[in-house]
Design a protein around this nucleic acid. Structure first.
Length: 112
DNA sequence: ATTTGCTCAGCTC
DNA sequence: GAGCTGAGCAAAT
C-alpha cells in the first residue's frame, strides 16, 4: 500500500468535512483518528487548503468545543456563520449536540 | 476551571 | 540533515 501521501490526506479530509451536514461540526481529532493521523496534521492540511471553497474550515472545531484557530482575524464572523448554519452555541463554545464526530465514526464503521 | 506537558507532522534554516 | 513551530489533545492540579 502506498504511504500516506500528504496530498491524499488532504483529499480525505476535504471529503470528510464536506460529508458533515449543515448545523453540525467535527473536531480535528475525529478526522485525525479516522485517517489514522495526528490532529495536527489535519489542522496543517486545512491551513494548506488548496480549495477553501470545498473545505468549510469553519465546520471543523476543537475537541474542547472551542472554535480553534481558523482565522484570528474575525473570530466573531466564524461563530456567526456556524450559528446561521444551525450550530448551537454555548457561551462562545460549540454545543455538544452539534458535534457530528461520533456519527462520523459510526458512518465509517469504525465504532469507537 | 485552569495550567502544564506531550506528541506528530510539516516547514524552514 | 537538524531544528522549530503549530488552526491540538490529554492529563494533572
Amino acid at each position: 500500500m502506498k504511504e500516506t501521501s500528504w496530498n491524499d490526506i488532504k483529499e480525505a479530509i476535504y471529503m470528510l468535512v464536506q460529508l458533515v451536514p449543515i448545523g453540525k461540526v467535527v473536531s480535528y481529532s475525529a478526522i485525525a483518528k479516522v485517517l489514522g493521523i495526528s490532529p495536527r496534521t489535519v489542522a496543517r492540511a486545512l491551513v494548506q487548503n488548496p480549495m477553501p471553497i470545498i473545505v468549510p474550515c469553519h465546520r471543523v472545531i476543537m475537541k474542547n468545543r472551542n472554535l480553534g484557530g481558523y482565522t484570528p482575524r474575525n473570530p466573531q464572523f466564524k461563530r456567526k456563520l456556524l450559528e446561521i448554519e444551525g450550530v448551537a452555541f454555548e457561551n462562545s463554545k460549540v454545543s455538544r449536540t452539534s458535534i457530528y464526530d461520533k456519527e462520523l465514526w459510526h458512518k465509517l464503521d469504525l465504532s469507537l
